[in-house]
Structures are given as structure tokens and as C-alpha cells.
Amino acid sequence: MFEMKGINKTFAGRQILKDFSMTVPDNEIISIVGPSGAGKTTLLRCIAGLETPDAGTFLLNGQAFNPVEDHGRERKIGVVFQDFNLFPNLSVEENITLAPTLVTGQKPVEARQAVSELMASLGLAQVAKQYPYQLSGGQKQRVAIARALAMQPEILCYDEPTSALDPTLRDTVGQLILELKQRGITQIVVTHDQDFAQNIADQVVTVSPLGA
């Protein structure tokens, strides 16, 4: 269970988030929807520890939790970015095993073995030796998901998972997110796509622009 209470965030005098609270139960999918400029991405960046909220508290399994201090092998939050942010100089397999080897300290061989099943289940086994520029958008996204999951996060966050993809792939991503739920993964999905959110989420949280 992940809780956020009274999150406030202001950028350059403009308040983006005001007293935002939500609860994410284990194994559920929470969608955060709203128009652009509503602060969805800011919210996600606060959860990911990429922004520091001006006020508010986070609780993970009842314990106080500071996303900004969420470092190293104990890192709890995984993120799939809108444009994936894969490392272009590393192969698919290296992208996925980089953190397990550098951060968790696994040997490269162990790390490759540990992620082989994960990669196969995401249809990435055949592209393991390829580089990001050689992949389709859908494949890149699955690499990003595998890369995050390889660190066994408590919560996996997505920023606009449908926006960088072909419209026909929208349902495929939805299926994948639901499959991951079956594997017991708690997920937070930020999207502007209401229908997509309704289709996959256990709970839809709507944010609206402040004072606009």
C-alpha cells in the first residue's frame, strides 16, 4: 500500500499540485487522468523522486517514505517514461541488466540469467542483442518495462504509455499492463486517455488544472 497525503508543488509561482492525496492498494492499477497542464506528470515525477514536493508526505506500507532519497538497491519505485529514455549505447540486454549489475551487484552472467525469463515473457528474447535504434516503439516500451521490472520495484509508474505508440498498439499496452497486474505488480498509470484509463484501471483519479 502506497499513500500520498497533502502533496503541494509550485513551479515559478504557479501552483501545480494542491493538497493532492491518494491511496494505491497493492496489486492494483491506478490511473491518473486529466488534461495536459493538470499536473499529472509533475505528480508522477514527485512519486519517482525526480521532483521534490513543497509539502506533503508519502507512506509505503505504513512507513514514511521519501522518494527523493529512494536510492540504490533498495529503490522502491520503477518508472517507464513517455519516450522511454533507453540508453542508446547499450544493447537491449545491457539496458535491462545494467542496474542489476551496477546497483544490486549481480555478476553479469547471473543478471542475464535472472532477466531471461522476464525478457522472454515480454517478447524480447529475439532482440536481446539489438540496440534501441533498431526497435519499434512497442518493443522499446517493453524494454523500458523490463528494465524497470529487473530491479523488482514495489510500484511501477508509467508516464503516458500510449502516447508514443501507434494507435493500434494502445490495446496491446493495456493488455500488457493487465498481465503485469496478474503477476502481482502494483502500477500507477498517468494518461490523458480517459477510455484507456477506464479499461485498465481499478481506480481512476482525476486531476484538473488549478486556477486556470
Binding site: 538497491r73 529503490r75 522511454f84 551496477l102 546497483v103 530491479m151
Partner: peptide, 13 residues
């Protein structure tokens, strides 16, 4: 900047 953030959310220093 996404390269730094991608690495950071994986726990890299």
C-alpha cells in the same frame, strides 16, 4: 536530460 533521469530511477549513482 532523460538519460540522467532514466539512470536515476534505476538507482544508479
Amino acid at each position: 536530460q532523460g538519460q540522467y533521469e532514466g539512470a536515476r530511477v534505476l538507482g544508479l549513482t
